[in-house]
Amino acid sequence: MYPDKTTAAGLVDAAHLAEVQGRSLWKDARQRFMRNKAAVAGLVALVLITLFAFFGGFLAQWSTEEIDWPLMGNVAQAGGPSIANGHYFGVDELGRDLYARTVQGTRISLLVGFVGAAIAVIVGTLYGAIAGYFGGRTDGVMMRIVDILMAIPFMFVLILMLVIFGRSILMLFIGIGLISWLDMSRIARGQTLTLKNKEFVEAAIAIGVRPMTIILRHIVPNLLGLVIVYATLLVPTMIITESFISFLGLGVQEPATSLGALISAGAGQMQYGVIWQLAFPLFFFIVTLFAFFFVGDGLRDALDPKDR
């Protein structure tokens, strides 16, 4: 849920520098990033997985819902991965094609990750930027609210919300996103505090630009480096959270599925000779998370002037 604080601390410096040195830093950062083999590998893996998630379905010979009746009830013997019958990854316990379902699961998990992170980042950045820009009492009240919200055990509240309002993908996105914006808002605020005394902001104020316009046009774009790195580290935590929610049986609605749901189902069946039901989804899950972590670390290092 909470990317570690060093990241956040390092980010502030990084983004600060980004702003001072202007455009050349982005080029620098790109070079630095490209030198980091793990990060580049992660990026390649991410691109491949995204392609798999969005276009892998075209290779599937079965739909995600269709039951292969002859295999049903006979999955352990006949339902394994096979090119011959078109089930590249085997079938699940009901005889549905695991390849098609893994493609769908990967897509939904990625979406949950991205949308959740996007909500957190957008809400957090705006909230932090507004608090930091206006300062004074507004800032005090807004940050006290964040303090209070931080003390609420949000995973519990999320479970309550899902149990109570029924599950829907939308609810999941919103629920997870709403948990995670608090840290982002603190970081954004701190950064805004230093930005707002810069000449270009003062110039904008002097010619009478309205505060909200200043925040959107001048402050937020300068928070971008920070936001991107934070988001990269947030996506995998979102995906992990989603898998936990699926484990509790509160995830996406059947027949749709997510990696978390597939893994949770596969984990229950692992000692029954159908290990592919766990192995394939888990592989994509782990590779995705690995990739995000490496890309995130790479980005942070690239944007961080202190050469490690």
């Binding site: 893994i263 766990l278 972590f293």
Partner: peptide, 10 residues
């Protein structure tokens, strides 16, 4: 990283 990405329900 491996330990972090392996869900504990697995």
């Amino acid at each position: 990283v491996g330990a972090q990405v392996l869900p504990n329900f697995v």
